[in-house]
Amino acid sequence: MKRILSALLIAATALSFSACAKQEKLAGTIKIDGSSTVYPITQAVAEEFNKQNPDVNITVGISGTGGGFKKFVVGETDINDASRKVKDEELEKAKANGIEMMELEVAYDGIAVVVNKDNNWVDDITTEELKMIWDKDSKVVYWSDVRPEWPKEKIKLYGPGTDSGTFDYFTAEINGEEKRIRTDYTASEDDNVLVQGVAGDKYAMGFFGHSYYEENKDNLKALKINGVEPTTENIRNGSYKPLSRPLFIYVNTKSLERPELKAFVKFYLEKAKDLVEQVGYVPLEDAKYQEQLNKIK
């Protein structure tokens, strides 16, 4: 209660200050939660923003896109990091609680399908073959079950766990239905575990966020999907299909009336280009950032 009161007080003083002088110092608390994929970008923005505005308290959680929306739709948080679009039922819940939101694109992310560095028989794979391997009740046990010329060695599969947005996206795009996947693969919420799994096993295959591949290029080989390499350029222009996707932040429109939050979101979109690249993701085109900026004006 005390906290709410003091937050209100701070917000009120901040408002009255900004009314008379625009250069006044910003203060207040910004609460962010959501996807762990978007987290590094938001953390980087928060870090930079705090250098200029040390009196604004920023908290960032990593409850996952869905977990974050649960808090966002009841008004517990101001911003939700999301690695997928908001779902209809989440929108309905928000509506029921009188919460309106604004969707802003902040970056692109690709999902890399990787094999071991010593794997010399595969460079390229099709979406059909991926579905054959990863689908529910898949019959694929050996590499040779996919293409007869590949070795008759057991294929070891690594992928993220069910709470991850990457998992939702991959299963929806490859297997045609969210969360539809074979059950006998090694799952971990920690992508570095997946990296180590694939890097340590010649006959392994795995999928995870592109940034984890970029950081571990020396030990892994990323496959072309339908002949397209997962390069920054191909992820940005969408030709790395179907495994490239936009990343979002959702902003509570009521919170956006607070000066510190508006400043933060503006800062986010203005600095995103550099910061997104620094943390290993693919920035949007300049025009697209401008488009997002226009939304909050």
Binding site: R3, Y39, Q43, A46, N57, T59
Partner: peptide, 17 residues
Amino acid sequence: VGALAYVSFVPKTPFDQ
């Protein structure tokens, strides 16, 4: 319970995040 991943401030009272 809601401990966070990134906090840009130091807690000052038991009611802080």
